[in-house]
Design a protein around this nucleic acid. Structure first.
Length: 284
DNA sequence: AGCCAGGGTCTGC
DNA sequence: GCAGACCATGGC
């Protein structure tokens, strides 16, 4: 990986184990939309970004070295050795297939509040509609950013609102959960900064004090919002995948990176093999 | 038209 | 602890 500054762009060449489309479209974040093939625009951490990939070159447009080093480098998880992770996961044949299906998959390091909010909105919902709700949330209550688009509204902003205020989002029953999360985070009752260092069970329990946050949403907030790769979110897709592909449980070699393994498996069963989940499900 | 969606809460055993 | 109704909305 080599990083150069070219005008207002940051250009990364010789990038390994990185597929922008898989990373941004696999359902781990909902704030990027594709402007043109392999070119995406989105906002995170109060910054707007247009990013494109061509082969092993990734270009971050209209950003600065400060924003790159201070945010995007971490956001795209550029300093994790995915080759080593993939070698470890390939101890198991099924995991090997999942990794081979999307070898450029990565898990983003999103700001914890943004991940928490996003996955509260994800419950009993589909990815298309989640994207729409998040977009309306940012446009309605977020701050307009210099590079275009709107940032994620802060907990403080949302904490002062009512469910009626959130009606334009069409978030349904999830609106009250967003408000409870905002209030508990703004008041300090839930401290998102602790999620990085707390024992994983304590971190999960802390998040579950918020109404509408159960085990799955908490694990998503921990994995995507605090880089806790030992967290292993089990949604309806992953439950089907585990029943059919890993009836004896996740292989031991994957446990330290369960969350990363989860991302390969999730994408594999949703997009890779049509019918992979029905095979084992027929017997029950 | 009807089923399902990156679930959680509440109630009743 | 576990099952089932219910929750709002819209994509397919």
């Amino acid at each position: 990986m080599e990083i150069q500054v070219s005008g207002k762009d940051i250009v990364i060449t010789h990038l390994q184990d990185f597929c922008l489309r898989d990373i941004l479209c696999c359902g781990q974040c909902f704030v990027f939309r594709e402007l043109a093939p392999d070119t995406f625009f989105g906002t995170a951490g109060g910054r707007a970004l247009t990013v494109s990939q061509s082969g092993d070159t990734l270009t971050l447009h209209n950003t600065t070295p400060t924003d790159f080093e201070g945010f995007w480098r971490g956001y795209f998880d550029l300093d994790r050795d995915y080759a080593a992770v993939k070698r470890a996961l390939c101890c198991d044949e099924t995991l090997r297939l999942a990794v081979a299906y999307a070898p450029g998959m990565r898990v983003l390091r999103q700001p914890p509040w943004e991940a928490l909010c996003s996955f509260i909105l994800s419950q009993n919902n589909n990815i298309k509609r989640i994207q729409g709700i998040v977009e309306r949330l940012c446009e309605t209550f977020g701050e307009a950013l210099p590079g275009g688009g709107y940032g994620f509204p802060t907990p403080q902003t949302l904490a002062s609102l009512t469910v009626e205020d959130l009606a334009p989002l069409r978030a349904g029953f999830r609106a009250k959960y967003i408000l409870d999360a905002a209030q508990k985070v703004a008041s300090g009752e839930v401290n998102l900064n602790e999620l990085y260092t707390l024992d994983i069970d304590d971190a999960r329990r802390s998040l579950m004090r918020i109404k509408g946050v159960g085990i799955k949403v908490a694990d998503c907030a921990l994995l995507y919002g605090a880089s806790r790769v030992e967290a292993f979110p089990l949604d309806v897709w992953m439950k089907r995948a585990m029943a059919s592909l890993f009836p004896k449980g996740l292989p031991d070699c994957a446990v330290p990176y369960a969350g990363l393994a989860q991302q390969y498996i999730f994408h594999y069963i949703r997009c890779g093999v049509k019918g992979a989940c029905e095979v084992g499900a027929e017997g029950k």
